[in-house]
Design a binder for these strands. Structure first.
Lengths: 263, 263
DNA sequence: CGTTCTATTGACTCGATTCAAACTAAGTGG
DNA sequence: CCACTTAGTTTGAATCGAGTCAATAGAACG
């Protein structure tokens, strides 16, 4: 992993939700961190911990998991800082768990204090990062509450795809899926058996493939439609294939790829 | 409604999650606001609005409601500021709706800017308010995802009760319920018919009464047990009848009232 | 005093869970 | 490199919680 990788991840993520100046980027390069590696289902942080640094996710997926029920309450992609809130309130009320192999950068709380005091703009960007999280939680409540299991699974896959693409990953609508179907089930609040049936359904509809730990979306439009996915809530400045309300549509239709079904 | 009522509500709420100095309280008294009244199911704010003030709830209940599905994603009690996040990102992605008659104070964004720049302590208290909200959302995901409908309803009632008591209301375990059973159903993601059956079940178990727009909890322990309610996530400094982990139990058992069943 | 909203009840249906078993892929150590 | 072990996926059958529909009863409101 090349030097400055952590910087790139964080810069990409912040840029996806806010405009950063050259000065802001310069501040970000001063980030100090230590690297951590974790294997699937390993706890990066445990309920009750009071860390003095934050986890910047560099590679793989993390999730918050309620220890008592096993319910997953949110999922993170590279560039995310799942425990950013520990800067203000350190105590954790859930396990931060790896979904597949994971690489993180532990960044001292002080860094986030420093950059928000040195740049109003970065401070706001970090607050927006937190608010994007809140919006995402609300959206997930709507999902669990109002959509059937097919739509839930489709929605989760749509969300992960768009978030990966927002930081330059999954450009070709292929995403690593190192997590198990049971993990997916825990996120969608359905049984593992049912999750499997839903995935088979999505395969049968030729919306996606899922093999050798990779999901390949073969019909993005169908998936979006099944999920009734509207990515506004993610707070992203642009989403390929979607127009933000009130902004001038600047993305050509060609940006939404048309897939051929290759068996 | 007496003068300074809005101050009292906000001060009580902030005190429930953080210690405030006399100077902090002095700052709070400088709050300027205008009063608004709303009737049941009326929208206080609508999706897409970009308000320049926040809603401090003085009386009644408010909720965020997803317009498309009708799903309620969170409920607020007096002292709460449901749209505090609009200070940083004004655009709303849901309707803020009254559950029964409501009185709010509209407080300019500037006030919150001012107090957080003038008192580090108040700034942190406001951030904690936001984080209590996030924790609450996560908890609600766990509810929808992992508990059956009886536990969900019981949990919601437990949460509302504890939050009311944290700001000095519902001292006698009686709480106003100006909302309908359908509202409750929308929050718990169950059908109105089923909500009704759950409530009857709770009545049959003699856990509570619900009549003339009032809920009377007749067996708090049973309700807590049915809900598997653990109020840590609310971030309150003290909860009567519960000990905070790591703190010295300072509340005598007598603080948890034993109820006689009065038919 | 009727109109409207809310609560209640029963019958039927269906999506999703559970249980159990078989099958496959992925490690691990001899 | 194979035999063994473990983790993950797939399938079918039985069951159950919750939803829907429809009709009635009751409370609140103008």
């Amino acid at each position: 992993m090349q030097k400055g990788f952590a910087f790139t991840r964080l810069a990409d993520r912040l840029t996806s939700i806010a405009e950063l100046s050259d000065g802001d980027l310069e501040l970000l390069t001063r980030m100090s961190y230590t690297i951590g590696h974790f294997t699937s289902h390993e706890c990066v942080l445990r309920k009750g911990d009071e860390p003095s640094s934050c986890c910047l996710l560099l590679q793989g997926y993390l999730c918050w998991k309620d220890p008592a029920s096993g319910q997953i309450t949110s999922i993170y992609v590279p560039g995310d800082v799942p425990d950013l809130h520990t800067v203000t309130a350190p105590q954790l009320d859930a396990h931060l768990t790896a979904l597949g192999p994971v690489v993180v950068a532990f960044v001292p709380h002080a860094f986030f204090h420093d950059i928000s005091s040195q740049s109003v703009n970065l401070g706001r960007a970090l607050r927006r990062l937190g608010m994007a999280e809140t919006a995402s939680l609300r959206n997930w409540i709507v999902n669990l509450g109002s959509r059937d299991s097919l739509a839930r699974v489709a929605h989760l896959i749509c969300e992960i795809t768009v978030r990966l693409r927002a930081v330059g990953l999954a450009q070709d609508y292929q995403l690593p899926s190192p997590f198990t179907q049971s993990d997916l089930a825990s996120a969608c609040a359905i049984s593992p058996v049912h999750a499997n049936r839903i995935i088979q359904d999505l395969r049968r509809r030729r919306a996606l493939q899922w093999q050798s730990r990779t999901i390949t979306i073969t019909d993005w439009r169908m998936l979006v439609h099944l999920a009734r996915f509207e990515p506004d809530y993610l707070g992203l400045r642009q989403v390929a294939g979607f127009q933000r309300p009130g902004s001038i549509p600047s993305i050509s239709p060609a940006e939404t790829p048309t897939f051929s079904v290759t068996p």
